[in-house]
């Protein structure tokens, strides 16, 4: 599999196409902002969105788990779009999740959409997790302890790239000295431009944005 290695707080981090991260030292796979159940979340208001987003996201996760064989899968929060999303999972979706759970332990970090653990979903729930020098949380923190680095989601970073007049807008990884923000992995997730103050203020000392193409992960900003 193509990947691009970056080093934060002395830890090897591999950026993967599709927006996930693999930590070779601990055999950990990380994804952010799955927003499972988003498609069916507005049905009560009469909004009947196509419900395929959840299954599509779960299929993508399972494929990644199968190709990386991680010991642990960390979902960086907002894994479920609302507290009722777990109940709305269809049989097919539950089966996909169970298959994934048989292949890797799952650690659900709580997010703002899923602040409390979702009932009847396998795996462990934590507000925050630490492994080696890496801290895993949903919302990026203002200050990171010296010598540590943080992996977070929440902001759904996107980047506008203009090359010889051709403009592209893509989901991206954004990283600085001591943090990495992952793009949203869910199928119905939009994005925030990396120039937005909410993102820019987190990277006073400069940042690098990475975008995946068919063959490789590229630094584009």
């Amino acid at each position: 599999m193509n990947f691009r290695e970056i080093i934060l707080a002395g830890e090897q981090i591999w950026l993967l196409p599709g927006g996930a991260v693999f930590l070779p030292a601990t055999q950990t796979l990380v994804v952010a902002d799955l927003h499972l159940g988003k498609g069916t979340s507005a049905r009560s208001r009469g909004l009947l969105l196509p419900p395929g987003d959840t299954i599509s996201t779960l299929e993508k996760v399972l494929r990644l788990v199968e190709s990386c064989s991680p010991r642990l899968l960390v979902a960086l929060g907002d894994s479920f779009h609302d507290p009722g999303a777990g109940e709305r999972l269809l049989d097919e979706e539950k089966a996909l999740l169970d298959t994934t759970l048989r292949k890797a332990a799952i650690l659900w970090i709580t997010g703002n959409h899923d602040a409390a653990p979702i009932a009847n979903i396998g795996g462990e729930w934590l507000n925050e997790y630490q492994s080696g020098n890496l801290i895993f949380r949903h919302i990026p923190s203002a200050r990171i302890p010296a010598g540590k680095a943080e992996l977070a989601g929440h902001l759904h970073p996107k980047v506008r790239i203009r090359i010889r007049g051709h403009v592209m807008r893509r989901a991206c990884f954004i990283t600085g000295n001591d943090r990495l923000i992952l793009p949203a992995f869910g199928s119905y997730t939009g994005g925030l431009d990396i120039s937005d103050p909410a993102l820019a203020t987190l990277f006073h000392q400069g940042s690098a944005a990475y975008v995946w193409g068919a063959d490789q992960i590229n630094r584009v900003a």
């Binding site: 090359i163 051709h166 690098a208 590229n218 630094r219 584009v220």
Partner: peptide, 21 residues
């Protein structure tokens, strides 16, 4: 009409990456 996500855009992304390198 732009062609999205094709080989052309891949080439451009790689070109941007080379500039950073």
């Amino acid at each position: 009409e732009k062609i999205r996500g094709g080989e052309g855009e891949d080439y451009l992304l790689a070109e941007a990456d080379k500039l950073y390198a």
